[in-house]
Simulated assay, not measured.
Amino acid sequence: MLRVEHLFKYYPVTAGLLKRKVADVRAVDGVSFEVGQEETFALAGESGCGKTTVVRSIARLVDPDGGQVLLKTDLLKEYHDAEGWLDLATLPARETKAVRRELQVVFQDPDSSLNPRFTIRNIVGEPLVVHRLGGRREIAERVDELLRLVGLDSSHLNRFPHELSGGQKQRVGIARALALQPKLILADEPVSALDMSIQGQILNLIEDLRDKLGLTMLFIAHDLSVLSHISERMGVMYVGNLVEVGATTALFRKPLHPYSEALLTAIPQPDPKRKVERVILEGQVPSPLNKPSGCPFHPRCPYRQQRCEAEVPELRLLGQDRLVACHFAEELDLRGSLQSDVMGRLGLS
């Protein structure tokens, strides 16, 4: 459904009266992955690693600086390549509106993504009005249907966003994203701004809608416990690069990159009396403005060797379906005993 190949997005840093470019913030630095039909693929990583920039680049909310974003669609066939893919990265800006019918975003913060001057009726119905999909009666019926689909009812139609709870606002955001019956949903940390009790409700809703509507989904999160229950495959990002990609359960059971190992052992233990061994990383996350030489993770890696400081590792295939960017992935013993504890915490076999 979606193929992202060597995606780049840099933000220039300027200085002086003439605003000359002096450096680049390398927010996304050559990311590649694919999402299958009706699959949920997840991107994980610490804040600032480039996950949201990937989403915004795919949706053309920002223009990527390089690479391809290939979408399998029947729209705009005059722009398809020989294999039938539509490259969103090079699609003329005037044509991006048509693609919105197949690709929608659920944003992280419902407070900032919903227009405070609009009623819920206007917010959910706006995509239908913009794309001229029906008259007033048809749009009103569709809005009622969408609200019921996400667990709300007609009593919410004339309310404003400030009159709703955080979970209700995110339900409205999901309803708006589904208004055009898209095939691909980009969910940018849709539960991170919600209370823990509400997160479970919204995740269950997203899973139910995915199965009922046959959606393909790119799900972004920094909480790996969320991804363990919602995604079939996942990729781990670090400072604008993918360091590991594979089936979610397999990656949780045996990570092959040291950064993946550290993220997994950082998942909270719900039992306060149970002591959990963690991998504590030294140092700080490097700035995308000034990445270290060689492997970007090497200043913090407990397994680093001299080669790591000089040579950038390629994202290479190990086994049938695991991609890893580590020179010594085959040789490292990433503390498998810790992983059984992690799987137990998440309720995974």
Rank of each mutant, 00 (worst) to 15 (best):
M1D: 14
L2I: 05
E5I: 14
E5A: 12
H6P: 02
H6A: 14
K9V: 11
T14M: 05
T14A: 05
A15Q: 15
L17P: 11
L18I: 07
K19C: 06
R20Q: 12
R20V: 02
K21N: 13
V22N: 12
A27V: 08
D29R: 01
V35P: 02
V35W: 03
E38R: 15
L43R: 00
G45P: 08
S47N: 12
C49Q: 01
T52K: 03
R56Y: 06
L61Q: 03
V69R: 02
T73D: 13
T73C: 09
D74S: 15
E78M: 03
A82S: 15
G84I: 10
W85C: 04
L86V: 11
D87W: 03
L88I: 13
L91G: 08
L91N: 08
R94H: 13
R101N: 01
E102W: 00
V105L: 09
Q108T: 11
Q108S: 10
S113I: 02
E126K: 07
P127E: 12
R132H: 14
L133P: 00
G134C: 03
G134S: 04
R136D: 10
R148V: 01
L149F: 02
L152C: 07
L152Q: 04
L152G: 05
N158S: 09
F160K: 13
E163N: 03
G167A: 11
G167L: 11
Q170E: 06
R176T: 02
L178G: 03
K183N: 08
P190E: 12
S192T: 12
L194R: 03
D195C: 09
M196D: 05
S197Q: 11
Q199A: 06
L209E: 04
M217I: 15
L218M: 11
L218W: 07
L227A: 04
S228N: 04
I230D: 01
S231H: 06
G235D: 12
M237V: 04
M237Q: 03
V239C: 15
L242T: 05
L242H: 07
E244C: 09
V245N: 00
H257V: 01
E261S: 09
L263P: 06
P268F: 11
D271V: 11
L281M: 09
E282S: 14
E282M: 06
Q284A: 13
V285S: 04
P292N: 05
S293F: 02
S293D: 13
P299T: 10
C301D: 00
P302N: 08
Y303P: 05
Q305A: 14
C308R: 01
P313E: 06
R316M: 07
L317Q: 14
G319Q: 04
G319S: 05
D321R: 12
A325D: 03
F328P: 00
A329E: 09
E330N: 06
R335S: 10
G336H: 00
S340V: 09
M343A: 10
M343E: 13
G344Q: 14
